[in-house]
Amino acid sequence: MLGPRSAVTRLRPVARVVVSVMPKPEILDPQGKAVLGALPRLGFTGATDVRQGKRFEIDFAGEVTDAVLAEVRQMAETILSNPVIENYAVSVEQ
């Protein structure tokens, strides 16, 4: 049996936009280096580099329109990333 929450979800589908933020290639990533250093100790010997970033999942009621995507890009540039040291990518999750 569906609860009230599911009923709401069915009536107003939630769209998810994902923003991935990564340190720029030329910026040192001490956290990624720490992970890379841990891998061989655990028997994972194939990795040559690890970079650590952030993933933001942003939900919207209704469809992801161009206006929504434009707003997300603005969020990414304003606060989610620091353009001095980071790049970002926006994608829509189906």
């Binding site: 340190p23 040192l28 001490p30 956290q31 280096k33 720490a34 620091n82 001095v84 040291i85």
Partner: peptide, 17 residues
């Protein structure tokens, strides 16, 4: 101040962590 872009550049985690 760096996040405000009143000063150039940024400050990241110490290289020795």
């Amino acid at each position: 101040l760096c996040e405000s872009h009143l000063l150039p550049g940024a400050l990241i985690r110490n290289h020795h962590r």
